[in-house]
Design a protein around this nucleic acid. Structure first.
Lengths: 83, 83
DNA sequence: CGTGTAAGGAATTCTGACACG
DNA sequence: CGTGTAAGGAATTCTGACACG
């Protein structure tokens, strides 16, 4: 489910993280929610899964930059595997 | 997906209906969203599908009471089919 | 019956900043 | 670097009511 439908409050509940943390991960370009005409962020279940992975990596000691790198590599690996 | 995660604004976009219509269908007990600690309603994708069906039935000329009856019958039929 | 709307309030979310470390 | 927090504002949603038909 990659439809951007939930507000940050629901994401907090689903992940157990604070709004601050979730917005920070966006600032660090680890996730990219949509915005309504106003300014409110909308997340997908896929975003929630990403956040949970970020959460996991953070606990393993990675910093946001490294997690960003890991994500990029995985996308690349996945890309080539499609050839 | 029966997780109650989206606000009424998103449901309006996904169904093309107004907030008024969606709240009215709830009043008529055709759908039952959750509520946050505050009072804001939260809907699931399943609710959205239900709303689309309601929408369809309304266009076919059924009134909310009849639609409620139809839904009840279908649940009953489904229940027995499980025996 | 089903839906639109203006009204006033309450809950939700937003940004930028200061703080700690 | 990653996160908490108080501050003020803006967007979102809520209820009850009046209206039309």
């Amino acid at each position: 489910m990659n439809e951007k439908v939930m507000g940050i409050g629901v994401v907090c509940e689903l992940t157990g993280l604070s709004e601050r943390q979730i917005r920070y991960y966006e600032e660090r370009q680890l996730i990219s929610p949509n915005r309504t005409q106003g300014r409110t962020r909308k997340y997908s279940f896929e975003d929630v899964e990403k956040i949970k992975e970020i959460q996991q990596k953070m606990m393993e000691g990675f910093n946001t930059f490294e997690i960003r790198q890991l994500a990029a590599k995985n996308r690349l690996k996945f890309k080539y595997s499609l050839i």
